[in-house]
Design a protein around this nucleic acid. Structure first.
Lengths: 212, 212
DNA sequence: CAACGACGGTACGGTTGCGTCCCGACGTGT
DNA sequence: ACACGTCGGGACGCAACCGTACCGTCGTTG
């Protein structure tokens, strides 16, 4: 039974959005600076200029805090990504990924959380929802359309295709942290397209995909 | 001036190898269990069944400990890797990488340290020595030989080639942590070879590489 | 066989972070 | 204008860890 509430929270008795935002930003910065392992609520509160209580009123634990905020941050924009050609789609996707991984925060937080996911089931589940699943979806659409156009063989395995698409760029930007030289992305488009089984860049009519 | 030493350390006054080994093993396990961020000397000592003093007598700090042990562990074996064909070399390399990343310890420690390297210059430098440089070397030899054989174009960029070779498999095994299905490695060999610019698997005579 | 001397282990103070409790401040609704 | 009730902030007890100092132990050397 829910007793009639005396009054709805109002006035000063309501969570201030500015504080919530400050906590979110501070969390991202702390996460980038020290990683999830060393992350402390106190440091987040210090950096945000708020009290620990302000945080604990909003999230029940450090894990809750990270999961909610990271998931929200990753729920951002997903590109439409339908340029009409496999190479066009790849180029657009790579540009989006490169842009995202340019963010100093993202390029430090993402590898850190992915590593942490190997030992923390909650983080693992969250990342699979907001990262891997999204990649599978984007990659799936990209591959499916390319197959329908006849650019890729019909028996293309989505799983392996995603590895081939995502792996090299992620390796370079997030792991090796090497610069993106001129023309690298364009070159990568060609390499990945060829690796996926697309015809050479020179337009050469392809036979119909295996029927049945 | 160095006064004549009374006596060389001997007997019980010498570091016991068994203790050193136990510390090494415990460090790897702790590193895998909690990551570098949370790593504590006390936990390593507990797990090794030794005292903290035993650790501090051997290494001056947590960073020293990790750097020395990780570098030593990574200095392991490097495959000869010269099978006579690009695809043979790739297959051998992938099998070696897959084997290494199967080790539960390695697959947890490596991503963790790579993420930590983004914010710790010492770790970054060490990993670049023992990982990246080695990859560049192996990849360089692999590509160079393939170019000499005419399997790859002469203007192949080593940098991008390494990304393409290492990225997909690392992504799948260490980041996405997906299983290695039957035939995956063989399939990956073909994809990467094609991505690098090799001819189709069907032997088709290639014109002589660009002369000069 | 006795003395040497560094070993491993325990104990210690200092620091940091967790999670909670209490308090004065504040803006809205009656 | 007043009462309401949650807000943010500071303080507290508890726990873990760091790095060091001290102490008894042990195997080798002379």
């Amino acid at each position: 039974m829910t007793p009639d509430k005396r009054r709805a929270p109002a006035g000063a008795a309501v969570l201030r959005d500015e504080i919530t935002t400050a906590i979110r930003r501070a969390l991202m910065q702390e996460l980038a600076a020290v990683g999830y392992g060393r992350l402390s609520i106190e440091a987040v509160a210090r950096r945000a200029g708020v009290s620990k209580t302000a945080i604990y009123r909003r999230w029940s634990s450090k894990l809750d805090l990270v999961l909610e905020i990271v998931a929200a941050a990753a729920h951002g924009k997903l590109p439409a990504l339908d340029t009409g050609t496999l190479r066009g789609d790849l180029a657009l996707l790579f540009q989006a990924v490169a842009l995202a991984l340019r963010h100093p925060l993202a390029s430090q937080i993402i590898p850190d959380l992915l590593a942490e996911a190997a030992r923390n089931p909650s983080i693992d589940a969250t990342l699979r929802q907001v990262l891997h699943a999204r990649q599978q979806e984007i990659g799936g659409r990209l591959v499916t359309r390319a197959v329908q156009r006849g650019e890729l063989p019909a028996d293309t395995e989505l799983d392996a295709a995603v590895d081939l698409i995502v792996g090299p760029l992620y390796w370079r930007l997030a792991i090796a942290r090497l610069p993106l030289t001129d023309g690298y992305l364009e070159h990568l488009v060609e390499s990945v397209a060829a690796g996926l089984g697309a015809d050479s860049v020179l337009p050469r009519p392809r036979e119909a995909p295996v029927s049945g």
